[in-house]
Design a protein around this nucleic acid. Structure first.
Lengths: 204, 204, 204, 204
DNA sequence: GATGAATGAGCCTTCATTCAT
DNA sequence: GATGAATGAAGGCTCATTCAT
């Protein structure tokens, strides 16, 4: 009972953590398979092999599960990217590193990625406001900063950094979306093409 | 019973057409405002100012309404693009024309576009298979053809046309998505930046 | 669709009104028989001989049914009392008339009275505040006004009118409560004893 | 296993007694605050600062807790009254003493009183029969005995002792109920008014 | 003694659909 | 054509109780 990180009852206890993880995993699978609208608590419980009540016991609400599925992956991804991008490299190199790191991170987490997309594009608060609206904006701002630095240092040509940041973000998301719906896609090849495409688009 | 597009009773009759259009418009508004999961028949009826029964009378099922909302707009868009792109122009010009035409088409149909996105990314058949999975593939194939022609004629540099087609498609969709969630966005400026971005990325 | 007296969809239509009444009647019976805590929508539906969905169709929520069960009876009672008490009579006569009218009103509505008591003493808002807390206060204030007049005119002796109003109200409610739980009770005899008791207690 | 009052495992053990008392106290607080219908075992455990399991360990069922909350207070009250009423006094004095003792007893136990009322008026057995139906009858019978004595000795006028006993009981309960829902009420003043009211009502 | 975990029944509500009028 | 009415399944959630540790 030391920390209060979640609104749920169990934290720290080995059993509780494991169950939460198991349920989150089941939720990700269900989201990935049947989509946001059909991802009911009952189906998640069934997939996890537990009774519906267990889920209410470990999570305050369905909302908490879905948010956790999305945010956990999102935060892990951000951490992975941060650890992959060296401050010393040039902006162009950092841009490549950042995009590569993101693709690499998700490449072994296809189910979770699909689940995250389902939640991020569908989850709404009681007033029907999309709960993850600002996420893509935040990502684009990071990219914009990088682009600005590259322009200052002469690596990148002149363009509106915010708008181009969104284009790059969109291209990257497009790659992931396509891979998410086509398991056979060669993500490595796609990544190389994407980096090449972007480099031609922005270099001085 | 001329066309086979709907499974419903009324087509051709002037009143029936109008009612269907009215309901589809209401459905688009609801989808745009509350999202796919909360777009119930009741809410659509309420928005259209008619009783729930009317909807069942004019549409065989909720599915049909949603499909129609998406497909009607999609087909209109395709027609608009086709009429905007001259066969005589160079591949680079055709690429620009095609992308511009698509942005232009949606620019006066923000609500419908948002509705279409909700349906296309969420609608599934009873087996939970996404119903519009292949749409983006089809779009990309058209683009790929253009790119191939441009490469043959020496306008575009060497790259994998299918993969780059997906990148361009993704960039364009990214522009629309951002505009869809940010009414204040200057779509004209964004389009110019996008065309410039893509031109740098693909030109020989 | 002329008046908007309720939050529900149907008013005025003969069928709708009848169903609402039927459901309210069933709710009163269930409340009377199994008590507030066990009076579920399912049981009310079962008692009314309809499906659970019918109830949601005619009432916005369970709350609305319960409030209506209580308030309908309460308002009818108030109207009955108002029509029974002559302004011309002396305060003492009006006091007697008022109390008699209330007992008389409920005497043919035992089930509804029991239901009303269940709701009034148990219904709470989401913050657990009793929803009908002020009802007894309001009743007592009317009585207090009568007592004050009686004192002014010399019919009643000196006492705190508010406190005595509550005592009279409590005595009357005690009679009704006892009758509510003992069908065999002779309400006429009890009423006479009560009026005699109160008269001795307050007369000058 | 000395007494037969509970169906639980622990009685007599000092720790067990304390825990039971603690839980009963928590139950009273919860009942007082959220009412009978919302007084769940979970809330009681939370209020007591223990796990839900503890409650099941010390009490055979939720029913037992609620019954105990009501009966403990009720029995303590009866004992207090018995010790306050002298057999030697006149019936009128005994009546005053008894009513005063009851008000005095509860005056320092507002939370418990409110809890008791919640249980007594709502608790039902599995067949939905009110479990404490006969309590008020019992109380009234004691009063009736007193009244009869007073009539025999000429202190009280002629009236139906059973009916008047119920009226006096109701008046007293009305005072307590009002005080229970209005913390600011001056119980001392109210008691004086009540005794005066009753005395005028019954004296010869 | 005590706890966390789990269960399954039951609750209120939403909803797509059907149907008589 | 159109409507109000009704249905029954499903959804998220609460809860009393049971049980292994």
């Amino acid at each position: 009972m030391r920390t209060k990180q979640t609104s749920s009852k169990d934290q720290g206890t080995i059993g509780g953590r494991a169950r939460r993880t198991q349920i989150e995993r089941a939720a990700a699978e269900v989201l990935s398979e049947v989509g946001y609208a059909a991802a009911s608590v009952g189906r998640i419980a069934e997939r996890a092999g537990v009774s519906k009540g267990v889920i209410t016991y470990h999570f305050a609400s369905k909302d908490e599960i879905l948010r956790r599925v999305a945010l956990t992956l999102f935060e892990e991804c951000a951490a992975h990217i941060a650890s992959s991008v060296s401050d010393e490299a040039s902006p162009a190199a950092r841009l490549r590193a950042q995009l590569s790191a993101e693709l690499e991170f998700f490449s072994s987490r296809r189910v979770e990625f699909r689940a995250m997309v389902e939640v991020m594009s569908n989850h709404r608060d009681p007033g029907f406001i999309r709960a993850f609206e600002n996420v893509s904006t935040d990502e684009a701002e990071t990219l914009a900063g990088l682009l600005r630095q590259g322009q200052t240092q002469g690596e990148f040509r002149a363009f509106d950094v915010n708008e181009v940041a969104h284009l790059i973000d969109a291209a990257k998301n497009g790659v992931l979306d396509r891979w998410a719906s086509d398991e056979a896609l060669d993500l490595g090849s796609m990544r190389a093409t994407m980096l090449d495409f972007i480099e031609h688009a922005v270099r001085a």
